[in-house]
């Protein structure tokens, strides 16, 4: 077994250090070493999106990133979105639009939505569905998720929560 790797990363705005095996994925590091279980292991091969995080601002399946690769990079997980002031507008929109049922895909969906809205403030419904196609949901049929992203976009664009 290879030596452990020392990783320093900016995780949800805080500098975090940890030791991991070189073969451990960022998802395993988050869940088993750092105790952040918001990112889910739905397939462990990049086909469901439940483990989505932002790595240097980019959407990533954390099951396809080694923990070691996060060294010196910034990582944002679902736990990093809300603060004491309340939910992030995307989270709020998922609540308001019933953009979740069982909630297992939800952290990944919200992270994917953030990655989209960070780069495209006004996506069409078609664009939302295309961008979110890497995030499987087995409960909702995707319509309320699409609406939640649309609502969040309107809110973030200053059009008010009713947009």
């Amino acid at each position: 077994m290879a030596d452990k790797v020392h990783v320093t990363t900016l995780l949800n705005g805080e500098s975090v250090e940890f030791l991991c095996a070189p073969s451990q994925t960022l998802l395993e590091c988050l869940r088993d070493i750092l105790g952040l279980t918001g990112a889910k292991n739905g397939c462990n091969d990049g086909n469901c999106g439940a483990c989505s995080v932002l790595l240097d601002g980019r959407l990533a399946n954390s099951c396809l990133v080694l923990g070691a690769e996060a060294d010196g990079r910034t990582v944002i997980t679902i736990e990093g979105l809300a603060d004491w002031a309340g939910l992030h507008p995307i989270q709020q929109s998922f609540v308001e639009e019933d953009g979740l049922q069982c909630g297992c895909c939800t952290p990944g969906m919200i992270i994917a939505a953030k990655a989209l809205l960070d780069r495209e403030p006004n996506p069409s419904d078609g664009r939302i569905r295309e961008w979110m196609a890497g995030n499987l949901c087995r409960c909702t049929g995707y319509e309320t998720i699409t609406r939640a992203v649309r609502r969040a976009a309107a809110h973030l664009n200053g059009e008010g929560a009713e947009g």
Partner: peptide, 23 residues
Amino acid sequence: TRPPRADAFEKVVGKAVFGPDVN
């Protein structure tokens, strides 16, 4: 009526504990 779901908040912030999250 359509009130927010009671379980929605913990789920959207990633704190809800699912089976694999027990530690």
